[in-house]
Design a protein around this nucleic acid. Structure first.
Lengths: 200, 200
DNA sequence: CAGGTTGCTGACCGATCGGTCAGTGTAGGC
DNA sequence: GCCTACACTGACCGATCGGTCAGCAACCTG
């Protein structure tokens, strides 16, 4: 009965959202396993019990943290798959996808960098499915090794760029610069992949 | 006095090496924070005390695990910097570097994916320095945003490809296939970066 | 004012964490 | 046979982990 007990659902979300934001930041920077509920509670100015009042468990907190981004990604993919496959629709998709990465960089970082240690979780498996769909949309059954490498490098590279690369770099890039450069580089990476009909 | 108490240094390394290998595998797949000494000991068939007999602490174990790869990387970089900067020497370096990534994929994965949560550790800071040197060698002061993105995507993408990409993919690629494709893709990524004289 | 719900908390739980220490068995040098 | 050194271990330590629970103040509804 914890799921939606609020009669006035719209407003009430403040503390939950606050905790999700702070938890995501911690998860992304120290890892899921490396983050304790106590740390999250301290950073948010609540008690550990309060965190567990809003979220049934640490896993549920992570799930709630990643789910909205996965919803968005699902919509973007649905739209892309629905369009007629063409060079221009692929280019448009790349822009849309990179905007998604920019807006959800920490969530993407979580999935890309910690996905394998969280494989049991539902939201991670869902993300895996989405990425599989994306790969299939871009190049059918992923036939050649080079295509698979192109896809992996583009995805993993963009995620790394957006979340971790600033570690060894001095001045951070603005979002606009990053966006433009990423669009160029990722488009270039994916360009040699021939469009193939989606295996119905 | 733990450092090198053995009169017959050459052979004696078995247990230490075994523990390092197993620990690296665990660290890479579940994260440093997510791996306990007990897990490592169990996987290796030793007791937790035995692990701590060979390595002064969990951190020292990680350090010992990553250091040889950093030594190798340092040598590769020294050789590259010493060569006259030219297109052909850059191409040769890419091949050398990708062979390094293939041979040390778990170590690279550790640095790339968990570097920011381990920033206090000496070996990680050393790795950061090496990457900085590499970046400077490839494109001087890293002037444009696009160059920085190219470099980050190449590095992060290759590391992701080699360690995590097989999570959502069905059949793994052979090392030969991966190597050839990576050389192509990374060379292509770095090609537009103009060679610049190494500062000073 | 009574009664219920909501947001939040401290005390507490068993388990596990990284790490210390006092050993034990054993192999080699004398 | 004795002794040291080495590889290894179980018992144990304080701290912290994720999670439970009873209860408390504030609020709305009647």
């Amino acid at each position: 009965m914890q799921t939606s007990p609020l009669p006035d659902a719209p407003a009430r979300q403040t503390a939950r959202e606050e905790l999700k934001t702070i938890a995501l930041r911690q998860f992304a920077s120290v890892g899921f396993a490396g983050t304790s509920l106590q740390q999250i509670a301290d950073a948010a100015g609540y008690s550990k019990s309060s965190v567990l009042y809003h979220f049934a468990s640490k896993e549920a907190l992570l799930e709630a943290t990643l789910t909205p981004a996965m919803d968005t990604l699902g919509e973007i993919l649905d739209r892309f798959v629905a369009r007629a496959p063409s060079r221009s629709s692929q280019d448009a998709f790349v822009v849309e996808f990179i905007d998604f990465l920019l807006a959800n960089r920490l969530q993407v970082h979580m999935f890309v960098n910690q996905g394998q240690s969280l494989q049991g979780m539902a939201v991670i498996q869902r993300a895996n499915g989405l990425i599989e769909t994306l790969a299939q949309s871009l190049c059918g059954e992923m036939r050649t090794a080079e295509e698979r490498v192109r896809f992996s490098v583009a995805l993993g590279g963009a995620a790394y760029m957006l979340s971790a690369a600033e570690m060894w770099s001095t001045t951070p890039l603005s979002d606009d610069e990053t966006r433009a450069a990423l669009v160029t580089v990722v488009s270039e990476l994916l360009a040699p992949m021939q469009l193939r009909p989606v295996a119905s």
